[in-house]
Design a protein around this nucleic acid. Structure first.
Lengths: 341, 341
DNA sequence: CTGAAAGCGCTAACAT
DNA sequence: ATGTTAGCGCTTTCAG
């Protein structure tokens, strides 16, 4: 009963036109006579015709698909970005193929290989730090790509992002202005992740500028999750005779974990300990106390990256770099430094 | 310099075998002589050959892609599910094409049409309530699909989900057992969303069973977001002379919004007002107080739905329905009913 | 086990 | 503006 899926030539025959005209009626309707267009449309409707994407892709060498590889899909800051990336791509006639690499370097190139094999017209990646094999592959197959979340110092690539270094620097200045000198850092795996590195460097730069010494043991590397944040607090607070006055976290997820751990062990934030994050996920407004953080324009990155990659695919001129704002958002989790101990 | 992308016949020529053998060496290696296999592999490597997915799809009529349409991609409970759906599909050799409909009925069929056009081997949808055009299209094109999050009473379709009705009923019983009789409902748009309907019905059934009257004005319909929850509290609390003793929310996002609004206006939870959610997003454990909710097995749904749709695609036998558990998780946001007023 | 050859359904010259 | 036709790169009979 599932009669063979109708093809374009079925449509052409029914409409009484040639295959070529039928094809044109669907893809460049302004190039056919209204009468032709109409009869084709009628035939399409009558047959319930749906284009065969594989055939179209094979013949035209364009798949109308864009792939995006994110570290994870369920970090809220990425989820927001993906949501808008997808919508914007769709509005431009592109579908989104999505994948994640779980912060694993090798996984990213495997995943990319699978994607290239399937065929995509463009690619969106998070960050600028990728394996050589990643860049080799996209260059070999000449796939337009845009890097997001960071700006690329080398200016080789198209980027839609912001300066993580600068944002972290500005945040640290605000922290220091509150009198803090006992500053701890909660970061994550830095390998293959220039955002982590840039944020830490920006923080350290502000400290150095203020003449504040940094003790390496006041830097912990934990997963980018609530649990990671809890672990960070355990390691930074419990095991020290001089506790830090503030913990600067690389991501909001970690910062919220730190806040949660503070609550469960009765540490008063910000009186005993200040906490800052980075990302500005919505949840950071709902914690007790609300979280001081850096606003990462995740939604904007999604929208702009989509437009940018589409422009590249369609050969439109675009600047190589789109630098967005990432303002510091000061809320109650950052307070004045506890009195000198 | 970007020399033409190598094709299979380039590989075959270099390996000194026929096109057919080269193809077989890649897709059914056990059907070729080891020597043949090896020389093909060498040629592949030497040329940096990558399969052309469009050609493969056209010839084999399989795209090795699965599409999923979710209401939104950034609700944490969906984001978790997507993350695991994607990973599991990938492990089975399928890519994920993702889209969202923003709870808009018509959008879902548009989106599906675009997906079918691009070609996918299988489909994952959230919920059982979809437009006729949705079902028509997947049946016409004979695309295996699995419905998630709910169980389908009609048993027509393949489902991976749980009984929303039953879970809501069990939760409501727990609420009632705490002495609550002034019960308000915070729901969302029910059109095209059987989850919302089932949850509300399950709640009302428990109330009715306990002989508790329900006042229609104690049911508000707000967006599935923090802000929706805040709005619900405004409408249910401020405008009433007899405030409710508990607000049962259809989703955790709303419940967290309610909690936030309670905090900002000094309503003590659970002493003055109890609040419950539904989803068990991780953040529900971090609120003050932690949220009573229903655990929705989002991750499991992702994994199982992926396996299920792959099984359907590959013609393996599978039961039509996979019913998962959705236990009530009682935390401090649910307390005893305030003393009779 | 391998080679030859016929498409898969569409696009994009090219010619009219 | 429309018809004709040659592929796009691969899979899959079918012989051998």
């Amino acid at each position: 009963m599932t009669s063979r899926r109708a093809t374009l030539s079925d449509v052409a025959r029914l409409a009484g036109v040639s295959l070529g005209s039928a094809s044109r009626a669907l893809s460049v309707p302004e190039q056919v006579k209204p009468a032709t267009l109409e009869s084709v449309q009628r035939a399409v409707e009558q047959l319930g015709y749906v284009r065969n994407g594989a055939a179209q892709a094979l013949a035209s060498r364009r798949t109308r698909m864009v792939a995006a590889i994110y570290p994870t899909l369920n970090n809220p800051v990425y989820a927001d970005s993906i949501q808008y990336l997808q919508q914007t791509l769709w509005d431009h006639g592109y579908r989104l193929m999505i994948a994640s690499h779980e912060y694993k370097h090798v996984r990213e190139s495997e995943v990319l290989r699978g994607i290239v094999e399937r065929g995509v017209d463009g690619l969106v990646l998070v960050g600028t730090d990728h394996g050589d094999d990643v860049f080799d592959l996209v260059r070999q197959y000449d796939i337009p790509y845009v890097l997001t979340w960071s700006l690329d110092e080398t200016r080789y690539a198209h980027c839609v992002g912001f300066s993580n270094y600068d944002a972290a620097y500005r945040l640290a200045r605000r922290v220091i202005a509150r009198g803090h000198r006992h500053i701890a850092l909660c970061t994550g795996v830095a390998d293959g992740n220039e955002r982590v590195r840039a944020r830490a460097e920006g923080t350290l730069a502000a400290m150095q500028e203020a003449g504040i010494a940094f003790h390496p043991e006041w830097r912990v590397e934990v997963p980018f999750s609530f649990e990671g944040g809890r672990e960070a607090l355990r390691r930074l607070w419990d095991a020290r005779e001089t506790p830090p006055g503030v913990i600067i976290c690389g991501t909001d997820l970690q910062a919220v974990g730190v806040l949660d751990a503070c609550r469960s062990r009765g540490i008063a934030v910000p009186h005993q300990l200040s906490v800052t994050g980075f990302d500005d996920i919505e949840l950071g407004q709902l914690t007790t106390p609300p979280l001081t953080t850096v606003h990462v324009p995740a939604i904007d990155i999604g929208v702009r990256a989509a437009r940018h990659v589409v422009a590249l695919i369609e050969g439109k001129a675009v600047g190589a770099e789109l630098a967005l704002e990432a303002p510091v958002i000061e809320r109650e989790s950052l307070g004045n430094a506890p009195q000198a101990r």
